[in-house]
Design a binder for these strands. Structure first.
Lengths: 396, 396
DNA sequence: TTTCTTTGTCCACTCAGAGGAAAAAGTCAG
DNA sequence: CTGACTTTTTCCTCTGAGTGGACAAAGAAA
């Protein structure tokens, strides 16, 4: 099956496609209310879209008091693939054209095994999704990697935690393998786009999305668009100094935020506490599984373990301090906290909030919600689907 | 004289006006090279602009190998007023339509005397400029104030160092008095626009402009546009914590950057050093004038005074540390340092550079110039003129 | 003077888009 | 069931933006 050969021919068509993507099936009349076009012009553009096959008629809409309108929707066979490569696992999902997740797979995998091994895994997961009957093929794929990306080319550049990927032509390679257009971005940016599309950041133009996983990063959205910086490294806040002369960090400096709080740092601190006999709870978990992760700390904290709670609070304070600076600087309308440590929940959130509200000026914090992301692990894959759909739903 | 009643009627005309503003007088043929329009269409739009009086014919251009072209330029009688209200002084300048400064006045004045007193001063300075024959009237005015501004309305909001200005309708009041359109912005944003238009930041799309004067602020330019944040307080980096549990700050917190380094902090530290007998050079200057300012420290440092050099280096380190964080976060293509303390020159710049290059990741700093602004005190007024001209040279 | 290049003007043609008229397909009250 | 009223859709005309070609005007080079 040949897939989505067509692209919108002009800005109006692109606009219509996005309206249908974000608002689901819609009648022509409803579309007319949302777009500033005359009825005749609208009809012409819709007809052209119908001809291309990108949209299809979908029965009659409910009456609004007069003649019933014909519904229009995006072609139901369209499929996007969203791939989120994390430091320690791969998430992959198929969506329809409305970016609804139809199937989602997750597989542990260390990104340091290199692009070839990871790609093999990604392709086998994609094949599994296809085999399950959710998709016959993909019309486009978005992919997020845990490091900076030269966005136009879709190539990772100097990624600290995945050195083997430097300069690997991710976009080109994946496009070749999948036989469809591909866009590549930083995983944190995709999480931000996901929350913007379907999560807490709907209808917010300027916000920050802080992802705390194995490392720490921050997606920056300015005027509805992701800000990637001149070399694609914007949002790399893990190596901002949080503690003067603090712990040594892998980057060579001391006191980086990431060295004091992140999934990896938390696991390390928990293990240390367990070995030092500070927490029976953590020690028991270490005994049981041989190792500790952020999830264990979350569970211990939920069980009331004081040491774990202290670790979380301490980390939240550090993070909050850095975020407070970013809030003063950027003056966002919303701060979203997400990533693997979301499980730490309200203890973490409270610590962050306390710091930000205390340290930033009232004008910047007065009406500033600081909330947890609501999409969890699907934020990344939805963001990835959104990335490629934004690309495909723009004038050729 | 009625002034500039006309405004560009469409985006093409606006585009042409900006080309003429930024590129000076130009032939029709040259304009055609820079704008994507057919010759006939271009001729029509130019003719219409000529009719409105916004542009005028200006003799013949040099031949490019064939028939000579007629030059076009912005009406030479157009005048913009740029006003830069600092914490302790007022700068005001007249420019022509190309934003060249024709006359510039500076007057010490404490902004805390309140909007009424300051406005009186501004109007009298404007009258002086007019009386000197540089302008018969003003076609528009831009004004910068040292605090956050609700930009669309042109009203200061909750400005820490100028409490009497909170909610004062600056835009409306000044527009009434001057009888021309007025736009208001934060002084730091205007400095950034000034350096972007005529200074070191020409042709840079994403950059930061750090102004160190009585306080510290940062202009943020994203994709060529100033980012003001949701409440207009973006760039307010003076109250980012630079020193944990550091000096108390006027804002109520401790360790704010501004409390450790700024024109005010530097003067205070210098005075303390002089009184403690740490520096003969500074003590002599204190003796002579009864007080010390950043200018004295700069002079002492230039004379080789070790204490002054230490103060500057120390401050530069603090500032550099904060900027390093912002660079990691924002990944700009350029950092401009400006404001009153530019006189501290390369000692300061070297300290800042050292910190930034050490603390930020190579990918972000690899090709990142950190330079002093090249416009000095005119950056603000040029930025102000640019602000209003951008407004007037956009479709009505 | 001839030839070539650039510039300016005119004009015919295309195309996007607006907006009115009227037909088609409903709802709703009586 | 009927007639009055709405909403949706189609059709058609009209306008105005913009393109591109032809040609005249003005100068440079030979």
């Amino acid at each position: 099956m040949r897939r989505m050969t067509a692209r919108p021919a002009n800005a109006h068509q692109a606009r219509l496609l996005r309206l249908l993507r974000d608002g689901g099936p819609n009648s022509r009349a409803q579309l007319g209310d949302q777009i500033d076009l005359s009825r005749s012009k609208l009809a012409v553009e819709v007809d052209r879209l119908l001809e291309t096959g990108l949209v299809v008629a979908d029965g009659l809409a409910a009456s609004r008091g007069g003649r019933r309108s014909h519904n229009i929707r995006l072609a139901p066979a369209l499929r996007f693939l969203g791939v989120d490569i994390g430091a320690t696992s791969i998430d992959i999902a198929v969506t329809n054209a409305e970016l609804e997740v139809l199937g989602h797979l997750n597989q542990p995998m260390d990104v340091r095994e290199g692009p070839v091994a990871v790609f093999e895994q990604v392709l086998s997961m994609a094949a599994k999704l296809r085999a399950s009957g959710l998709a016959e093929g993909f019309d486009g794929a978005g992919i997020g990697v845990p490091g900076p990306v030269r966005f136009p080319e879709g190539v990772p550049v100097a990624p600290p935690i995945m050195p083997g990927w430097d300069g690997f032509p991710v976009r080109e390679a994946l496009s070749q393998e999948l036989g469809c257009p591909v866009m590549v971005d930083n995983d944190v940016n995709l999480m931000a786009m996901g929350e913007q599309h379907a999560g807490v950041a709907r209808s917010v133009g300027d916000f920050l999305c802080v992802k705390i996983g194995t490392g720490i990063g921050c997606g920056i959205v300015v005027g509805g668009e992701v800000h990637r910086g001149v070399t694609g490294s914007a949002g790399d806040i893990g190596h901002i100094q949080a503690v003067p002369d603090g712990r040594p960090c892998a980057c060579g400096n001391r006191g980086c935020l990431e060295a004091h709080f992140s999934g990896a740092a938390l696991a390390r601190d928990a293990k240390e506490a367990a070995l030092q006999g500070l927490s029976a709870e953590l020690a028991a978990r270490l005994e049981a599984s041989g190792t500790l992760s952020a999830v264990d700390v979350a569970a211990a904290a939920a069980a009331g373990d004081a040491t774990s709670l202290d670790l979380i609070r301490e980390g939240g304070n550090r993070t909050g301090q850095v975020i407070a600076g970013l809030v003063s600087f950027f003056n966002p309308g919303l701060v979203v906290i997400g990533g693997g440590v979301t499980g730490l929940g309200h203890t973490l959130l409270a610590a962050i909030r306390t710091q930000v509200y205390r340290q930033s000026l009232p004008l910047a914090t007065g009406n500033l919600p600081i909330v947890l992301g609501e999409l969890g692990p699907t934020a990344g894959v939805i963001g990835a689907a959104r990335l490629i759909s934004d690309h495909l739903f723009s004038p050729a």
